[in-house]
Amino acid sequence: MGRVEPLLNLEDVNVHYGAIWALKGINLTVGEGEIVSLIGANGAGKSTTLRAISGIVKTSSGRIMYQGEDITKTPAHDIVKKGIAQVPEGRRIFANLTVMENLELGAYIRKDTKGIKQDMESVLDRFPRLRERIGQIAGTLSGGEQQMLAIGRALMTRPKLMLLDEPSMGLAPLLVKEIFSIIQEINKDGTTILLVEQNARMALQIAHRAYVLETGRIVLEGSAQELAKQEDVKKAYLGG
């Protein structure tokens, strides 16, 4: 059987913030249709990895390949057009705009009026609470609703690959469950997922494969099930 080209492939990626060496030679692949989780402690470089993929931070060396194409130097606003959406850490919704306008901004790169309308409907079906608040200023939403809006906004770009940065952060346990099951649904509908989480237990439960990041290096990788069973992962990330 021929080798299948992965959807996303990071090859020896290094990122510096001034003197801080945040990513020290990351190698990571995401195959089409997968949910891949990237777990690690605070400051390990998880967000930086996603920012590098989205083109928000510059890499100092290494390559980022997407669908066989080198996107290392592609500007952030063009990466979205290629089908990579990010739900950033802390949600970063446009709090001064309405819920509707936030979703419309998700479709900023698109011209297919009909498709946009359909996607808007399906996002609002997926998140009925957003439909109720469609005209409201997004800053007035609760934390959970804002997270849904951030995910909905990313869905409006109609992504092939969705990067999620700590979507469970600051949410009540029930909402966390809801968000994770939504992520699984989105994946079943055909979107590949790269999920960053500090909540390793949940992240390993829904993922096919996972990587463990420690101070800018990947120290472990494998199927999510295997990783969840490993003693050192249990100790460090699963609370025993």
Partner: peptide, 14 residues
């Protein structure tokens, strides 16, 4: 309006 609120988030929207 999006850029003036959060330029990076706006970039992520393309």
């Amino acid at each position: 309006r999006a850029v003036s609120f959060d330029g990076q988030a706006a970039q992520l929207m393309g």
